[in-house]
Design a protein around this nucleic acid. Structure first.
Length: 209
DNA sequence: TGCCAGGCCCTCTTTAGGGCCTT
């Protein structure tokens, strides 16, 4: 299967999990995602999932997702199988994408599913495009850029929606500052991999293409 | 019961250490 081009859809996703490391036995408890096509949200995916064990009090407090809510939720395998269908044909985007990618890879490996898209990361792009900000936490960036929100944080779909809006802010910054009229997904991924000290020069060259 | 990770990035760096970010 070929990698989707920038003209195709992008899935912005966010996991809530039992902890920080699937290698240490942590599991996903919620997935939220929006599908973007040409910058517009054209579809959404959200589901709680039962990890098969009780989550800690810290996670209940941090996410607002309680053991009682998870008791009647479908299994991780059932939800992730549906999500694998949802993301086919799309590139992927998350805030601190290495975290979400680890859980996506781990959960899909358990059900022998995979995906073809590439990941981009709004955290890495933010550290390069907005070096003036002291914090690059999603919630702080939402405040800094005055991104519309409903006050819900640390729930998967709400965080995915805000990440999608942050992505649009970053695309607009490239248009305004560097006159790059239609920044591609591939360019954003390239920005994330470019050393911070070289980004300015790289984008100036990009603007001349 | 208590504990756990990993990639990025900076600097008092590279034979390392520590903060940031995600739950």
């Amino acid at each position: 299967m070929s990698i989707p081009s920038s003209a195709d859809s992008i899935i912005v996703l966010d996991f809530e999990t039992t902890g920080l490391s699937p290698q240490q036995g942590d599991r996903a408890i919620e997935i939220g995602a929006v599908k973007l096509h040409q910058g517009e949200v054209i579809d959404r995916f959200q589901s709680l999932m039962n990890p098969g064990f009780r989550v800690s009090g810290f996670i209940e407090g941090y996410t607002g997702i309680t053991n009682n809510m998870l008791r009647s939720a479908p299994s991780c395998a059932e939800v992730m199988d549906q999500f694998a269908d949802f993301i086919q044909g799309s590139n992927l985007l998350a805030h601190n994408a290495s975290f979400d990618q680890r859980f996506l890879d781990a959960e899909l490996a358990l059900i022998c599913r995979n995906y073809a898209g590439k990941f981009a990361c709004t955290l890495l792009v933010s550290r390069r495009l907005h070096q003036e900000t002291s914090s690059h936490k999603l919630g702080d960036l939402v405040k800094y850029h005055r991104i519309e929100n409903d006050g819900v944080f640390h729930r998967a779909l709400a965080d995915a929606e805000m990440t999608a809006r942050l992505w649009q802010v970053q695309l607009n910054a490239l248009k305004d500052k560097y006159a790059i009229s239609q920044p591609s997904f591939e360019l954003m991924a390239k920005i994330a991999k470019t050393p911070k000290a070289s980004v300015e020069q790289m984008l100036r060259k990009e603007a001349l293409k």
